[in-house]
Design a protein around this nucleic acid. Structure first.
Lengths: 227, 227
DNA sequence: GCATGATTTGAACGATCGTTCAAAAATTAA
DNA sequence: TTAATTTTTGAACGATCGTTCAAATCATGC
């Protein structure tokens, strides 16, 4: 049985190798399409080691999701708390998406794979409750609270809906599916995350303002007119 | 071998039963977690019939995606062509998302399952090229063109990015993952699609206007300020 | 250095997988 | 009705799946 504490360095290294390989393969094909044999082969370890460190297989998937969640959550909270008291909505959204962006860009290939895993988890009811809500809702609550403070006259529900749209746009973006590359005939590249992110911030901020009665400062009113 | 034309009614009914069961199960657990035996058991037919009508298994998944795509595409194009020449951006977006909304609400349970399948397909590189681009890009091109006409001073790339965010918000919405129910402590319900849709239209329209220099009529300029 | 416990190995378990096939049944065409 | 074709059946194929286990190896504390 594996110990709960770091235990031996060798064992920890094996754990990480398995997690890396699992993350890489889960990102490409999903949970069920990847066998423990494929993972341990990719990791260069024996099959039984996967069952020694992670049992059942679902626990390995959970560990993959959990591993980078705490770092991401910490970075998001730090960015949120570093905001100026009167920080605009774009800055709040950036405090949420920015840490994911910088990790996808400069955090090594594991983060790109992680983003694809998260896209699968966030877009299926099957995983949402046990993985998405469990590991990301505490931080999400902090951001929703900050957004509510920034948009004091907005209804709470509308902030939640806006956050929901934000999650949808963010997850499909960092997953880099490549569809927009084909649709735009090469004009846009899914891999050009920096450019996408620069568009995503004003897009989402304007969306939030539109569904709220006011952002609490300018008193601007969102457009109503659709048939 | 199955005939390409409708052939016998009995065979067509069997095909539809298999497709219905496959759609239902794929929606819940994904392609690889669902076996042909589970599908044929759910459909109440023999295992070998799945391999008679659809071989290999991937062809069944493709057929599930394709089945409702043509109806959805036709409804979207009809809504697009029914728009007034000076229809606002919200109306264009509604012509795209409205047909999916009305089918999820009143099209029978199959459409809700279909929406969950599409969310998986749209959010993974694994499926995007062969399924998403193949069946939905022609109509997407028409909507992008219409949006460009409505936002004539916008750069083409920005319209594509906006469309990309729209797809992300739409797919996670219709998938009804339930996360927002938990996050909002019951204030918001994923199943309340009509309410979500009413928020989504102004949210996305404002986002499009923000990342474009102008919407071609009011000349309004999107906010720039983020740190 | 020895004993204890953690880690790794290699093999095997039963179950389920996608796919194939020949024969039976049902339908259509003549 | 007879003949041709499509659809359905039931059984089986080899392969791979997640999981288990006893034995071997390694590292550590006494």
């Amino acid at each position: 049985m594996p110990t709960s504490s770091p235990a031996r360095p060798a064992a920890t290294a094996t754990r990480e190798r398995i997690l890396d390989a699992a993350e890489r393969l889960f990102a490409g094909a999903g949970y069920d399409a990847v066998s423990l044999r494929m993972i341990t082969r990719e990791a260069g370890v024996e099959l039984a080691l996967a069952n020694y460190h992670f049992v059942p297989k679902l626990e390995l998937f959970r560990a993959v999701v959990e591993r980078r969640a705490s770092d991401l959550n910490a970075a998001r909270m730090a960015a949120l708390e570093a905001l100026a008291p009167d920080a605009p909505l774009e800055a709040i959204i950036d405090a949420f998406s920015g840490p994911f962006l910088s990790r996808s860009l400069h955090g090594g290939p594991g983060w790109k794979a992680y983003a694809r895993v998260i896209a699968q988890v966030a877009n299926s009811e099957r995983w949402t409750h046990a993985l998405m809500s469990a590991y990301f809702d505490p931080v999400a609550h902090a951001f929703v609270a900050r957004m509510r403070a920034r948009l004091p006259r907005a209804r709470a529900e509308d902030i939640y809906w806006g956050f929901h749209f934000l999650i949808g746009a963010m997850t499909i973006t960092f997953a880099e599916t490549g569809r927009i590359d084909v649709l735009s005939a090469g004009r846009c590249a899914s891999s050009d995350l920096a450019t996408i992110h620069a568009r995503m911030l004003p897009f989402l901020a304007a969306g939030f303002r539109a569904i709220c009665a006011s952002d609490g400062i300018s008193g601007e009113t969102g457009r109503q007119g659709h048939e």
